[in-house]
Computed example of a mutant assay.
Amino acid sequence: MPDVSTPPAPNPVRGRLNSAFFALTAGYTDRRLAVHKRRLFDRPGVVAEIGAGNGPNLRYLPAGTAVHAVEPNPYFHRRLRRTAAGHGIDLTVHPVPGEAIDLDDASVDTVICTWVLCTVRDPAQVLREVHRILRPGGRFAFIEHVAAPGGAVRRTQRLVRRPWRWTFEGCHTDRDTAAAIPAVGFASVDITEFRFRSGFVPVRTQIAGTAVR
Rank of each mutant, 00 (worst) to 15 (best):
T6G: 00
P7I: 03
P7H: 02
P8E: 05
A9Q: 12
R16C: 01
N18E: 12
A20L: 08
F21G: 03
L24C: 08
L24N: 04
T25C: 06
T29F: 06
A34I: 07
V35M: 12
H36Y: 14
R38F: 05
R38H: 10
L40M: 05
D42H: 11
V46P: 01
V47K: 09
G51I: 00
A52E: 11
A52T: 15
G53S: 04
N54R: 11
P56A: 13
N57F: 02
L61S: 08
P62H: 06
T65G: 09
A66H: 13
H68V: 04
V70H: 05
E71H: 13
Y75E: 15
F76W: 03
R82Q: 15
A85P: 02
G88T: 03
V93H: 14
P95I: 13
P95L: 05
G98R: 13
I101M: 15
D104H: 15
D104G: 14
D105G: 03
A106R: 15
A106M: 07
A106L: 09
S107A: 02
S107L: 07
V111H: 09
V116H: 10
L127I: 14
L127G: 13
V130L: 03
H131R: 15
R132Y: 00
L134D: 12
R135G: 01
G138W: 10
G138P: 12
G138C: 10
G138K: 10
R139A: 10
F142W: 14
I143E: 07
I143D: 09
E144Y: 07
E144N: 11
H145R: 05
P149H: 00
G150E: 04
G151S: 04
A152G: 04
A152H: 09
R158S: 09
R158A: 15
W164M: 07
W164T: 08
G170Y: 06
T173D: 04
A183D: 15
A187R: 13
A187F: 08
S188K: 10
S188R: 13
V189M: 01
V189K: 00
T192M: 06
T192I: 01
E193L: 01
F200W: 03
V201A: 02
P202C: 07
V203Q: 05
R204P: 04
T205E: 13
Q206R: 13
I207F: 00
A211H: 12
